[in-house]
């Protein structure tokens, strides 16, 4: 009788703890869902909620409003996507690149959306302001050329990734990536 009681008690305890754990997972997942966390994080919380508790105390990082795509957005996506695939190749060098590439993308997209703004203004008509419109056209052309030049250098950087993988010149690759990122950032600052 006491043996049976021990088994029943152990089973009840195990079941109770299991239900409590699952309930904890549901509660944490619900709170993360309310906080606007990604769906994968919410599902992960159902299984391993103790590991995701730190997220409950902090607000989700604000996401920057998406910039309106400009005339070069397709080209930017194509070139940077190819570079990302190359840098992410397991055979590529071990240079940390995610932050620099994200910065590069932000800067190029920002410059591209400014081109889009200029295009919209020029399309609205320039009656009585021909001189200003000409200046805007010239500035727009210079900016578009600058963006294209950066994109051409990004393509060249892909080859440098291959060189670094073969020759082990990681430092040169890293500094080139940072230099491009910095140069792209100035596209938004210098007229």
């Amino acid at each position: 009788m006491s043996g049976l009681l021990a088994v029943v008690t152990a089973q009840a305890l195990t079941g109770g703890l299991g239900v409590a754990y699952l309930a904890g997972g549901v509660v944490v997942a619900g709170l993360l869902e309310q906080a606007g966390r990604p769906r994968g994080t919410v599902l992960g919380a159902l299984v391993a909620w103790p590991l995701l508790l730190p997220l409950l105390g902090e607000a989700p990082s604000p996401t920057a409003p998406a910039l309106p795509p400009g005339p070069l957005r397709g080209r930017i996506d194509q070139v940077l996507g190819a570079l990302q695939d190359t840098l992410g190749d397991p055979a590529a060098s071990e240079v940390p690149w995610e932050a620099d590439l994200a910065g590069l993308r932000r800067a190029l997209e920002d410059a591209d959306s400014r081109l889009a703004l200029a295009d919209r203004l020029l399309a609205d008509g320039t009656d009585g302001a021909e001189e200003a419109a000409a200046q805007l056209r010239a500035a727009r052309a210079r900016r578009a050329d600058a963006v294209r030049a950066v994109l051409a250098e990004v393509q060249a950087l892909r080859l440098q990734v291959g060189m670094a993988a073969l020759a082990g010149d990681d430092d040169a690759l890293s500094s080139r990536l940072q230099e491009l990122s910095t140069r792209a950032a100035t596209l938004s600052e210098v007229a």
Binding site: L43, G44, P96
Partner: peptide, 28 residues
């Protein structure tokens, strides 16, 4: 590839980017 090549740098990156919420389910 990242966590096999440079796990320590990955921990630092996740902290620096504040991307724990996105990376935790991938690591899981």
């Amino acid at each position: 590839a990242e966590l096999l090549r440079a796990p320590g740098a990955m921990v630092d990156r996740i902290e620096a980017d504040a991307s724990f919420a996105e990376e935790a389910p991938r690591l899981l």
